[in-house]
Amino acid sequence: MTSLYEHAGGDEALHRLEEAFYTKALADPVLRPLFPERVPTHVPNLTLFTAESFGGPDRFTRELGFDYMIRVHRGLRITDEQRQRFADLYLEALDEAGLPKDEPFRRAFREHVDFGTRVAQQNSHAETDADLHPLREVPHWTWDGDPD
């Protein structure tokens, strides 16, 4: 079966998605505290993460490691409103980036974003390592909507 990564269109399509999302996040007043300025590595790093999550190359793990993802979220104190806005803007960016519109892909993508934003939100409030979400590696998302 084709991976979500291949179905999405690989690195090029995912880079378009991350750029469309990041542009929206930078302009959004609810997300501005989380994205106060453009960081040159944000889109490339998020592209690597999404690619690996969707069954593409494991470059995020090899080049950055999951601890990087934990570090960038710690202390952000993401609110419920910010978590939801992040997810909403991400889903809007799918169409802008020209990603597939079929329901199985969109469902898996929505579930991936919902899961990821909940992990990031929990980690953003963690006072100690024990408060962190137990996830310690890039989740490999499947068509069934569950990380394996």
Rank of each mutant, 00 (worst) to 15 (best):
A87H: 02
F86D: 00
R110E: 15
D88M: 07
D11P: 00
A25R: 03
V119L: 06
E12D: 15
L48G: 06
L135G: 14
R59G: 12
R59K: 08
P44D: 05
R136L: 08
D58Q: 12
Q121H: 03
D80M: 03
S3F: 00
A120Y: 03
T50Q: 01
E6A: 07
E92I: 10
R38H: 12
G98W: 14
R110Q: 14
S53Q: 14
D80T: 05
E37I: 15
Y5N: 10
P40T: 14
V119C: 05
H15R: 06
A8Q: 00
R62L: 11
A97M: 03
D95C: 10
E6V: 12
P139T: 07
E52Y: 05
G65H: 06
T2W: 11
D95A: 13
G75F: 09
Q84D: 14
D146N: 11
L89F: 08
L26E: 03
L89I: 05
P33T: 02
G98Y: 10
R85E: 03
A13W: 01
L99H: 01
V113F: 04
L99C: 03
V138F: 00
T79M: 01
R32I: 09
H73L: 07
A13K: 01
T142Q: 06
A93L: 08
E137C: 11
R16Y: 00
D80I: 01
T79S: 12
R106C: 11
